[in-house]
Every structure is written in C-alpha cells, then in structure tokens.
C-alpha cells in the first residue's frame, strides 16, 4: 500500500492503516540502527532541511540521524543563527529554502498551524516536528511503536496521559493516534491545564484525580511541566503539582503490575516524575528515544514515495 500524503502534519490526518504502515516500516528499518555500518542508500540524492524555530535537542538530532542513515543530505537551520532573527517571515524563509531545491522540510515551530501554512506554500514535503500546542506526530508514532513492541497491539490498552494537556502537542498526537488504534486514553491534570472539549478529540476520558487515570493502566505517560511557557496563574507551586500530579512508586503501584512509564523528555526530575520511577525497571524513556530514529526514518521514507515494508 502506497503512502498517499506529501506531508505529515498530524496524526489527525492519518488513517489507522496509514499509522500501521508507518509503524511497520519503522519496525523493519530499526534493524539498520543495530548494524556496524548504519547506512542504507534509500534516500541517496535527497536533501532534507531541518528548520527549527524552537529549541530542540532530541527531535532535531533524531531527524538528522534518521535522514543520514537513509543517506539523505541534511542541513540544519535554527532560528537563533538564521535570518529569522533579522525579521524574515516564514513565507520568505520557506521561499528561499525552496529555491535551493530540498525534497523534505522538517520543521519545528512555536505557533500552531505553522506547518499547515508552510505546506500550502511549498512543493516539497513537509514533516511536522512539533507546532505549538497542536501536534507532534513523530512523538506520537514513536510512543505507539514503543507500546506496540511491548504489548504486540494497541487494541484495548489503557493509556494514562498526565500533565498539562492544554499546552501539549504530544498529548494531542497521542490522543489521535492511540484512539485510532483502539487504545483507551485517560487524561489527568489540574483543571487549569485541561482544555475545553478535549474528550471530543478522540474517545478519551478526563479524570480529575490522577489515581483514577493510572489505576490498572498499561501505560502511564507523563508530560513535561513547562512553567516558563505556561505562566504563573495555572499552578500554585511545583511542589504541590508534584504531590498531586507527579508519578512516584506509590502512585505507579495502582497501574498494572508491569505497566510502562513513558515521558517525551526532557524530564523535570522530582516534578512530574520522581527519579526512582524515571530510572526504574518500568521506565521506557530511553527506548522511546531509540525508537524515535526508526520512526523518523519511516516518515522520511514514506513522504518520499516509498512503498516498501508492510508486513
């Protein structure tokens, strides 16, 4: 089955079959990352531009490695070093980048919808590496891949997502992806961080009490609390947040015995996640990072018109 999309802006736009295709291909490509010579010629001659308007270590590095392992040429443009600081508009930056004939632009941008804007204006493929509080599809896919590796299928899994849902693109992509794949998503967080109508995004259940969401969960996904982004009115203190919405061993015991603990990173140790849990046996945080490369290889491959690798 061919992948029909020129761009990957969000998991909202993909069908269950398309998500499965991306995950299956990632599973097949993963093996390359274990080789001595970690390179295949699949995207040789293709140019991938990483256009990052927001700070990122994990995602940018992961996309770059993914592109390089597929033999694409990669260029990184970050906001602090580019003409963006000289006041160039996204439209002009895009036009200039496009004049250099890239095949794929991987972009991260602080404003929701920036990719939608970009994709309408360029002929090359656009992959969303995170836009505002909208979507972060590669994160959603790598989270699902990590869960699938453990459970075989996502059908019927109980997944708790805890934290600032309002400002989280990770939560939205996971909600779209997981509910399409048949998982049951439970959200928890302070009401100041729960956006209106979120339960209508997919079939999700909103819990006031974190313990309700975590009870008998197969997966507990903790979100990063970003006080610098979210302002001072949403929470009394990080200490109180940690007490009611942080994951420690005590709360984790409410979940299924072998439940997975996940986090998109970077972690605030002692805030949303205590170190025991973050570094404990149930933590799959580094596995997520590892899977990130394979998932991004799969995304780059499929927007380039690849048809291989279904099971």
């Amino acid at each position: 089955m061919p992948f029909k999309h020129k761009d990957i802006i969000g998991l909202q736009d993909l069908t269950r079959e398309e998500i499965e295709l991306l995950l299956n291909t990632a599973e097949n490509l993963k093996e390359i990352n274990e080789r001595d010579i970690k390179k295949v010629p699949t995207l040789r001659g293709k140019t991938v531009v990483n256009l990052f308007y927001e700070a990122s270590t994990r995602t940018r590095t992961s996309f770059e490695i993914a592109a390089k392992r597929l033999s694409a040429d990669t260029i990184n443009i970050t906001a602090s070093t580019s003409s963006v600081t000289k006041g160039e508009t996204l439209s002009d930056t895009a036009r200039n980048v496009l004049a250099m004939k890239p095949d794929i632009i991987v972009m991260r941008h602080a404003i929701s919808g920036a990719h939608h804007y970009l994709a309408q204006r360029v002929s090359c493929s656009v992959i969303n590496a995170g836009d505002g509080a909208h979507e972060h599809p590669s994160q959603g896919l790598l989270d699902m891949l990590t869960m699938r590796q453990k459970f075989g299928s996502l059908e019927g899994l109980k997944v708790a997502i805890v934290g600032d849902i309002t400002h989280s693109r990770v939560a939205r992509s996971n909600i779209y992806g997981l509910t399409k794949m048949g998982a049951n998503v439970f959200l928890a967080g302070p009401p100041t961080m729960m956006p209106p109508g979120i339960e209508r995004l997919g079939n999700v259940t909103v819990c006031n009490d974190m313990r309700e969401a975590v009870a008998d969960a197969d997966v507990v996904m903790m979100l990063r609390i970003q006080l610098e982004r979210q302002g001072k009115t949403l929470l009394p203190t990080l200490k109180e947040y940690s007490r009611y919405f942080g994951l420690n061993n005590h709360v984790l015991q409410l979940a299924k015995k072998d439940a997975m603990v996940m986090h998109p990173g970077p972690i605030n140790r002692g805030v949303e996640l205590c170190s025991h849990v973050a570094d404990g046996d149930q933590s799959h945080i580094l596995k997520q990072v590892e899977n990130g490369v394979a998932v991004r290889m799969s995304m780059l491959y499929h927007v380039s018109g690849g048809e291989l690798a279904t099971e």
Partner: peptide
Amino acid sequence: VGEGVMNEGFTSTELGLKG
C-alpha cells in the same frame, strides 16, 4: 484574553491555539 488568538472552545483545543 491573555495571549488568546481565537475563541476558547473545542475548536481552539483541536487547533492547539490559545483561547
């Protein structure tokens, strides 16, 4: 209003825009 850019409701939640 804060940093809101559209009406706060289901649509702002879906679009990830501040309401």
